[in-house]
Design a protein around this nucleic acid. Structure first.
Lengths: 139, 139
DNA sequence: ATTAAAATAGTAATGATTCCTGATTTTGAA
DNA sequence: TTCAAAATCAGGAATCATTACTATTTTAAT
């Protein structure tokens, strides 16, 4: 029942903390494997889930069919690029007031909300303009 | 290239329009099969995707690992019960202003936002209180 | 050092969704 | 009406993320 220390879990957490983007389980796996070549994908999944349950990391779902993970557990919002799929942080005031607003005409207890934004990220926007036949700078 | 009429697609759309909840592909499949027993699950998926691409229905993703579908394409928000998993509509003013707010400190083009709420729905709340040892009405 | 609980590696299983293929429907024109 | 091309279908195989299983290894308390 008690939690025991594990080198694998430590490495997963450490790796996540080095990243400002929000890697998927598979990306975590590929990277941790560089230092610990025979870690298994199942171990990565199990520990990501465990850490998320403990509240040490956050699981992020942005509708792309893959779970992303974030070592930053403070409340903040995310942006998903519909072009490259990257998930990035977004500075913005907290919107918990929405829960009150939503609860006004609703029969039930609203515990929280999920909000994320989508569009074209800065990099893809630049690349798109550069590649455009209608007047980008090429070379 | 041109779209051709299909009985299957019609039935799928018709079934969705009878529902105020937001069925998954599998639920659509099981129900349409009552009238058209040898429709295939692949056909249901293909047509749900097609209808969603045409904008005739909406695909809803609420982080439960399954896509839900909604014949009501007008902008509105959803609530997911963490107890029973049901997805229901939620009356609330549109929040497109959030996109402007979010774009303020962001490098990129924000096209839209996804918001949904979660908690305990009215039915589960009632059931929970009824079953509670700490003072429900038993008789 | 001993030992029971927890965690692991490796692999199999699951579940939602997509892809593939040969047969069937639809539709517009002859 | 007849016909052929394009679209769609049914059924099943394949994919992909994730979870479950099991024999072995690691952890940590005695």
């Amino acid at each position: 029942m008690a939690l025991k220390h594990s080198r694998q879990r430590e490495m997963i957490k450490e790796f996540l903390m080095t990243r400002t983007d929000h890697p998927t389980a598979d990306i975590v796996y590929m990277n941790v494997r560089k230092q610990h070549p025979n870690i298994s994908l199942g171990t990565v999944y199990r520990n990501l889930t465990l850490l998320a349950d403990l509240g040490e990391i956050k699981r992020i779902r942005v509708g792309d069919g893959v779970d992303h993970f974030d070592a930053d557990t403070s409340p903040h919002y995310h942006f998903v690029c519909t072009e490259c799929g990257h998930v990035t942080d977004l500075q913005m005031k907290n919107l918990d007031e929405l829960v009150t607003l939503a609860g006004a005409n609703f029969d039930g207890q609203i515990a929280g909300h999920v909000t994320y934004f989508y569009g074209i990220c800065g990099d893809c926007g630049k690349a798109g303009r550069d590649a455009s036949p209608a007047g980008g700078a090429y070379h």
